[in-house]
């Protein structure tokens, strides 16, 4: 009962936040609201018992991507530039609504949440449930699948994420030749005097 109430209220907050992001003309406010959106999604995932997804959502959505978008905003220097609502989004709105209706229609055939007779649970899931602990020694089945059965896949993902992280750091972090840097103390001194 209480989980239903929490789910409904959190989903209502999600909808309010999404509308506020769309309607907002301040880019900084949009980024902050994106952070709140990620926190709400993570809470919903926790309530729905998807702990690993929730953890990823909180770390990447609320933590990293907020900072990355803010860094981009600072680098592109349009902090106070207003977004215009001049375009007419009716075609996009129609496409989105039709796609959403088709997707909702598609969910009607999906078996219930956690249904043991669902097709996804009939083939390899049974094997993992029976053999994951004796074969890998990992008590959590999801961890056993990710870290042992799909170990090379996870290793490749780690390489991809590491490469992406290095690329993002090079794009956003490495600019030593601007006036506001440590390598030029004279300009910093002057700027400091101007500020004080």
């Amino acid at each position: 009962m209480i989980d239903l109430i929490i789910n409904i209220i959190l989903l209502a907050f999600l909808a309010i936040t999404a509308v506020a992001i769309i309607r907002s003309t301040n880019l900084f406010a949009s980024i902050m609201l994106f952070g709140i959106f990620s926190l709400l999604s993570a809470t919903l995932f926790v309530v729905m018992d998807a702990l690993d997804v929730a953890f990823t959502e909180a770390a990447v959505g609320a933590g990293i991507s907020t900072i990355l978008m803010l860094t981009t905003l600072v680098l592109t220097k349009n902090h106070n530039e207003k977004r215009s609502h001049a375009h007419r989004p009716w075609l996009s709105l129609a496409v989105v609504i039709i796609t959403g209706m088709v997707l909702v229609y598609g969910t009607l055939d999906i078996p219930g949440f956690g249904d043991p007779a669902a097709p996804a649970n009939m083939h390899v899931a049974q094997y993992y449930i029976n053999n994951a602990l004796p074969e890998t020694g990992v008590p959590n089945i999801v961890t056993a699948v990710l870290a042992s059965y799909r170990g090379f896949d996870t290793l490749g993902e780690v390489a991809v994420i590491f490469t992406a992280g290095v690329a993002v750091l090079l794009l956003l972090g490495g600019k030593p030749s601007i006036p506001n840097s440590n390598s030029n103390p004279g300009i910093n001194k002057k700027r400091e005097e101007d500020e004080t």
Partner: peptide, 9 residues
Amino acid sequence: GDFHSSSVD
């Protein structure tokens, strides 16, 4: 404003 000029600012 950014991360690397932090020690001065």
